Simulated scan of single mutants.
Amino acid sequence: MLQNKSVGLVGNQSSLVGDQHLVDFLLSKNIRIKRIFSPEHGFRGTADAGEKIKNSKDVKTGISIVSLYGKHFKPGIEEVQDLDIMIFDIQDVGVRFYTYISTLHYVMEICAEQNIPLIVLDRPNPNAHYIDGPVLEKKYSSFVGMHPVPVVYGLSIGEYAKMINGESWLKGKVKCDLKVIPCKNWTRNQVYDLPVKPSPNLPNALSVALYPSLCFFEGTPVSAGRGTDQPFQCFGHPKMNQGDFSFTPRSIPGASKYPKFEGEKCFGKDLSKFDLMDFRKRKNLDLSFLLLAHQQLHSNTKFFNAFFKNLAGTDTLRKQIEKGMSEEEIRATWQKDLESYKEIRKKYLIYSDWK
């Protein structure tokens, strides 16, 4: 499919074939890679969250790298018009506000508009064993959530690409000429420990598992551990009162250059000793962290910022928490939309669903 073609490749540090980067592997097979496209965190995965990235060249190969997290999220016509085919190979974590699926959307869109076939090299989703969270409302669509799916959507990135196409979510309802290369020997219930960090602040399996629950703190004054050795494995705030656990965020170039509460002592909860297998068995988001922090802080600080509704995909969750609803009551309000989503999702499954 790639021989004698001019190839574009969307990838980052997770685009590995064994221990070899996909770029190096394809070049060794005499495949002509014309251009590399990189998502948030850059081609080598070392840029801070939200940090704008400039176009560059790959030091090792000299191939031009186009940033899809700088001046624009979508490749320009001039950046793809000399390509015969595009490859997308990025490790996802199965969470709506993780921006790699938004990059996938825009790559599919330009490929559809310019009649360029797209190959998605599928990879296991470490959070594929459950579906949970509010379904995004269209008016809250942004780069941290473009589609009407729950926070945790239970699909591989290849299945997700099929859903983007099948549900006509691309602008103008265009269809991408899509080919998904599936994983062998993977099931949705399988524990999959990522061989490489998918982004700077998800260093291990526990952080990946806790990320869907703790990322809500990005829309509040609470730190989710950025600027520590335990990102997305703890949370805290200078005014919280939680036992004897504390941490002091520091600047960590390549991970958290300007963390929340840099140099200030934060008190909160240490989740780094959580039993990962026990947490997986729950098969849901844990809202207790968010509810606890709100209970302690809302009376003396503005708790929710404007970003929260983009992360939640709705403004309802904020209102429910401010109203004092319990986790069980909040979760119950998601169920109708989740059931509707699950029916849509069935159409795009490549791998057998849960027993």
Rank of each mutant, 00 (worst) to 15 (best):
M1D: 13
Q13W: 08
D19C: 07
D19P: 05
R32C: 15
I33R: 03
K54S: 14
D58F: 12
G62H: 10
I77M: 07
D82V: 01
M86H: 12
I87N: 07
G94Y: 07
V95Y: 04
Y100F: 15
Y100W: 09
L104T: 10
H105Y: 15
M108D: 02
E109K: 11
E113K: 15
I116A: 02
P126T: 03
H129T: 02
I131F: 03
D132S: 01
P134T: 01
K139H: 13
Y140P: 00
M146A: 05
P148V: 10
P150M: 08
V151P: 00
Y153C: 01
G166C: 04
E167W: 07
S168I: 00
K173A: 13
V174A: 06
N189V: 01
N189E: 13
V191Q: 12
K197T: 07
Y211N: 04
P221H: 08
G225E: 05
Q230C: 10
Q233D: 00
D244I: 11
F247W: 07
F247Y: 07
G254L: 07
K273Q: 11
M277N: 13
R280A: 03
K281R: 15
N284P: 00
D286K: 14
L290V: 08
L292Q: 14
H294L: 04
S299N: 12
F303C: 02
K309S: 12
K309V: 14
N310Q: 11
E328K: 15
D337M: 01
